[in-house]
Amino acid sequence: MDATKQIRLSVLDQSPVPQGTTARQAIQQTIELAQLADQLGYTRYWVSEHHNAGSLAGTTPEVLLARLGAETEHLRLGSGGVMLPHYSALKVAENFRMLETLYPNRIDLGIGRAPGADRLTASILNPANKFDENDFIDQLQDLDRYLTDEQGDGPFVQAAPVTDTVPERWLLSSSGQSGLFAAYLGWAFSFAHFINPNGGPQMMRLYKEKFRPSPLLRAPQANVAIFVLCADTAEKAQQLEDTMVLQMMRLERGERVGFPPYEEIKDYRYSAEELARAAHQRQRMVSGTPEQVHAKLTKLAADYGVDELVAVTITHDFADRLRSYELLAQVFELTPKAAQVAVAV
């Protein structure tokens, strides 16, 4: 990363459903958080796709993005991501061409390969899905053609609506394999450190080394997503982290529970085996006061060689979530887009 470049911040919102709340409330909070991020000067706002997960309400990014576009003015809006093996490449292309028609030069199409669900749910979403790597590569190439109107070897079908702009194309990965696909196709690449905290910088370097320019992207473009918990005091930040760690462990065990309040977990006693797993969970996140978080995230960006970080923040209390993003924007000195426009004029 160029040391002179300011780090850009973006948001990945999974629309969490904390204990004691409803999915409707979670989606309303997504709208409110997007509006705040728009005001604060964040670069992108991505929403995720999960299925059969009671603690997460985000199942259809393309539907949610249509609403978020009407509620914001400056943010790039995107999927983090659409799980392509569940769907027809043509339908995904048309969904995002429609979004690009509605909100020109503001749409990111982020594509993932993971099920975003358990295998049973994935098989119901697409009974023909064999979870085959070659099938995924074929879908990516088809999607590329539909978005750019390139004539393939077979019959030509044009994705509609036809527009004069194209969504940014991103591949999302927690293993690095999709980084190689992104490099080959000339797509941008996002690494999910919040899922896998190991080996990411090496995978990012490989993406950049193997990158082949495409008509829509002449040089590598990348970011890194990580859990971020920022609070006014170190004590509050530690409480947020402790709650997050236990919730991640519960989800790993297959427990379908909403995000708990700190009071519920503060007296939890870990077994020796759980302590080792908890240490791994803590590697997936950065927490602390604004100054502490700034130092940790700046180092993370340097390790990965990127100038954009995507913050994933989940808390029980929505006010804590909003405050975390506010503090992040302040400590990284984000400039609201409206102020940028005013200066330019």
Rank of each mutant, 00 (worst) to 15 (best):
L185R: 00
V293I: 11
R113S: 13
V310C: 12
H50V: 12
R284V: 07
G58S: 15
F96S: 10
E241D: 09
A89G: 12
G81M: 07
A122D: 10
T59Y: 09
V47N: 01
S48T: 13
Y146D: 10
Q247N: 10
L229W: 02
V82C: 10
L334A: 09
D232R: 08
I27N: 04
A329Q: 07
S10L: 04
H51L: 04
L328H: 06
L9T: 08
A279M: 07
R284Y: 15
Y262I: 10
A339N: 08
L40K: 01
N105I: 01
R321G: 13
T243H: 05
H280S: 11
Q141A: 11
L40Q: 08
P155A: 10
F211A: 04
A53M: 15
N126A: 09
Y325L: 14
I31E: 01
A278I: 02
S324R: 01
L36S: 11
A301T: 01
A278L: 03
A117S: 15
V157H: 11
H316D: 08
P261Y: 05
V343F: 08
T30R: 00
I226D: 03
C230G: 11
K130N: 08
A319F: 06
P161I: 07
L9K: 02
M244C: 05
F181W: 01
N223Y: 04
T289K: 03
T335R: 13
D144C: 11
N52W: 01
L9G: 05
G258L: 03
F259D: 05
P167W: 10
V166Q: 14
P16D: 04
A295H: 08
D307Y: 00
V157R: 12
E252T: 05
G81W: 05
